[in-house]
Every structure is written in C-alpha cells, then in structure tokens.
C-alpha cells in the first residue's frame, strides 16, 4: 500500500515539476518555427509517434547540437551531419557513393536521405534498426563510421559545459543518460518531415502540373507506384531491384533476418527529394536519374530474390522517361533543406 501511494505521490511530484506547456507558441504551429510533429493531411499515421517523447524546443535543440557534434566520433572529426548534409537532402552529397568514416574509412552503403523517418517501419537500408530512438547507436559505434562506444560518447557529452546547459534546458537537470540523448536525437530527426514539394501543392490545389509533369505522373502511377506508392513514395518494403551484384557482395536485409528469401533485398527508398540526394541506390552506383531509369528499362539482372514486378524490366519509351523525370522533379521539397531549424549548429 505504502509503495503504491509512494508511486502516486512521486508521479504527482513529477507532473507538478514539469514545465508548463506554454513553451510551444500555438501561433507558430505548422510554420517553420513550430516544434510540433507534423502529420500532413491524407498521410498514414507515423510508425514513431512521439508517445513518451514529447517534442519541446529544448529537447529538439539538444538533438540538433548532438546531430552536428564531432565529439561523437573517435577522433572528433565527424558528426552525423558530416554524412547527412542538409543541403544534399541530409545525404553525403553527390561525390560520395558510400559513407565516409573516421580515418578515411569507406562504408559499403550510400548515406540514406533523412526525411519522413517517423513513417519507416524499419530504419536503415537493411532495416536493422526497429525504433528511431536507437538509430544513432549504429553509426556512432560502427568502426568504419564514428567508431566510438555509446558509453564513451555519453562521457564526453557529460564532461562538456555546453551540454550541461543543453541537458538542463531539455530535461530539468544536467544528468546525461543514454535515454535522454537518444530521445533528443529522435526529436530532431523525427521533425524532418518533407511535405512541401510542388507535388504536395498540386495535391492541395495550390499549384498545377505542366503537361509533361502530368504525363509523367501517369507513367509513375502505371509503372512505379506499386513499390513507390503515394504519398510517401515508398512502401518501405525490402526488395531486390535487380542491380548486378557489387564487389561487396552485400546481401542486405539477409544480414538482419538470416532468411534466404531476404538475400539482396534492400529497403525501397522514397522518390521524394531525388533532386538533392544523388547518387542513387543502396551503394550509390548511379549518379543520375537517367542511369536509374535505364537500369529499370534494360539493366535488371536476374539475381536471386529479384522482385517479380521487375522481371523483364520496365518498358519505358524516351518520351515516358522524359516525362517521368519532369514529374520526379515535382517531388523536390526546397523548404525542408533550407529550413533554419535543421541548420548546422555548434
């Protein structure tokens, strides 16, 4: 009995000590300065819904500092933002097919673009991460990425006076825990929602497609939408899209599930923001979208577990390709990658 009452009184204390909710100005909700998670009209419910991790300005800001913090790599040279640059749709940019780690080490996969992450059922190309909150542990500890143990990362953060202030602002005291660290990361990354492309404006009746864009939309619906379905432009399933096997022999999803049916399967990426995120495919082998379309037209290789939808390739006339490229350009969201909330900070 005493125990139960103690719990009740403790939880009341907790409630009474919480910051009053006025910190988010309702007038800014929906604008660039809002820290309220956005679910655009007509979209499915996100998989990660911030239950138990209410976004606050201070929690998000801590996540932003951490995202751009080079101390989280062994030699303090690389931050998350090094391979996820805002100007390139939070990828490593056009000159890096695969990610770069400490000591000039090269990864085996293309740094994925970061947006609409709360809708991913599994994170990473192979789906090895099942909850957005724990995602940062992977690249921080990976020997060919940031190469620092989570414990050491937390010790470094705890020793920094800057982070003492940031943790106090976000959580009321300076105690650094992995849970606070990870939840702030999730607040920062989870708010990267891309929903302001021309396509979205057309859907909202604010703009109209050109004839070429409209024709491309038809091609998309007939030939691409079974995997890259609207409005996220991916079903986030794992598929083998028939790329000839690269020198890494990367088996993809199989490494996680050890199910032979998953050999060579990778997560279907979204078609949003392709204008920012070259090169393409899980290993960044294609530098242009024309190469990507050529692959689907004539380059599909019959490796094991090839997605049945791609056997024989996708017939695309030169006109259809041209129209498709026009349509894909309407999926570029210029606002997210200029959004001041996500800019580099130190």
């Amino acid at each position: 009995m005493k125990g139960i009452l103690k719990i009740i009184s403790l939880s009341l204390l907790f409630v009474s000590c919480k910051k009053d909710p006025e910190i988010i100005n309702p007038a800014t909700i929906g604008s660039e300065n809002s820290y309220e998670p956005v679910v655009p009209a007509g979209w499915p419910n996100p998989v990660y819904d911030f239950t138990g991790n209410t976004v606050t300005y201070d929690g998000f800001t801590l996540g932003r500092y951490l995202f751009y913090e080079p101390m989280l790599s062994l030699d303090s040279t690389i931050s998350c933002g090094s391979c996820h640059m805002q100007v390139f749709g939070f990828t490593n940019g056009p000159s890096h097919a695969t990610s770069h780690g400490v000591n000039g080490l090269l990864g085996k996969r293309n740094s994925p673009a970061l947006f609409n992450l709360t809708w991913h059922t599994k994170i990473m190309w192979d789906g090895g991460v099942n909850n957005l909150e724990n995602q940062p542990i992977g690249p921080i500890q990976n020997p060919i990425e940031m190469n620092l143990s989570l414990s050491n990362a937390l010790l470094r953060i705890a020793a920094s006076s800057k982070y003492k202030t940031l943790f106090k602002n976000a959580y009321g005291d300076t105690v650094v825990t992995s849970q606070r660290f990870l939840k702030s990361f999730a607040q920062f990354m989870g708010l990267m929602v891309s929903y302001n492309s021309k396509y979205d404006k057309v859907k909202n009746g604010k703009e109209t497609f050109t004839a070429a864009e409209n024709n491309g939309y038809t091609v998309f619906k007939n030939k691409c939408a079974s995997c890259h379905n609207e409005p996220l432009f991916s079903d986030y399933s794992f598929r083998n899209n028939g790329l000839p096997i690269n020198s890494y022999q990367d088996s993809g999803r199989y490494k996680i599930t050890l199910d032979a049916n998953d050999i060579f399967r990778f997560k279907t990426p979204s078609l949003r923001n392709l204008g920012f995120t070259s090169p393409y495919m899980h290993d960044g082998r294609f530098s242009s979208l024309t190469q990507v379309l050529n692959h689907y037209e004539t380059g599909v290789s019959p490796t094991i577990n090839l997605d049945p939808l791609l056997s024989g390739g996708i017939a695309l006339s030169p006109q259809e390709k041209s129209d498709l490229l026009s349509f894909l350009a309407t999926l570029n969201d210029y606002s997210l990658f200029n959004d001041s909330r996500f800019k580099e900070i130190h």
Partner: peptide, 24 residues
Amino acid sequence: RNCSGAQTGALDPIHDMFWDWAQG
C-alpha cells in the same frame, strides 16, 4: 522491449548487451 526505443536501467544500451547493427 527489443523494439521499444531508448530504455533505462538494466536495458540501457550502455551495458554492452545491445546489438547496434541488427538492433535488439
């Protein structure tokens, strides 16, 4: 609890009992 995000106590990932690549 293998897919419930950031945990504390015995389940804190700092205990070196958490795979970061095939998470769990």
